[in-house]
């Protein structure tokens, strides 16, 4: 897929918003890939955290909003504690999710969860899941 990147496509407002929400400076990332190596979910991720960071630096707001990566993150902080640039990537992932959730878009629909699953899951799974994946 050809992607056009130019001064016109870079969404500076989006970059500012991500930095503001996460309290991080995404330009600090130098693309070493340590985060993906440390990430428990990376085996199943369509796009690794390193690439998300690059796409963020390039202000690719629409592309990022279509990706599953932010929704696959378990907020485990492995990336954050290993990043040689000191970026708290778990916070960046949260910012990526929130920009979507705050448009009232849910990733999972609590009312559609099977009753058997709800009965079986520990409360912390439901509370944490709803906190991270619903608006």
């Amino acid at each position: 897929m050809a992607i056009e990147i130019s001064e016109k496509t870079i969404k500076h407002e989006f970059i500012d918003r991500i930095n503001e929400l996460s309290g991080q400076d995404i330009y600090k990332c130098f693309q070493c890939g340590t985060c993906g190596g440390a990430c428990p979910m990376s085996g199943q991720m369509e796009i690794l955290p390193r690439k998300i960071m690059r796409m963020l630096q390039l202000g690719m707001a629409e592309h990022i909003s279509e990706l599953e990566t932010g929704w696959e993150c378990a907020s485990c902080h492995s990336c954050s504690v290993n990043c040689p640039r000191g970026i708290d990537l778990a916070r960046v992932m949260e910012a990526v999710r929130l920009l979507i959730l705050r448009k009232n878009i849910n990733k999972i629909e609590p009312s559609r969860l099977a009753e058997a699953v709800v009965r079986e899951l520990p409360q912390i799974a439901l509370v944490a899941g709803f906190r991270k994946l619903t608006s």
């Binding site: 929704w71 696959e72 378990a74 907020s75 899941g129 994946l133």
Partner: peptide, 20 residues
């Protein structure tokens, strides 16, 4: 010993959880 078990992703990505 400190690899995340996938946590609340059991709701949205149960296969990733099985993998870890």
């Amino acid at each position: 010993n400190t690899l995340c078990c996938g946590s609340y992703q059991v709701l949205a990505h149960p296969d990733s959880v099985a993998d870890v």
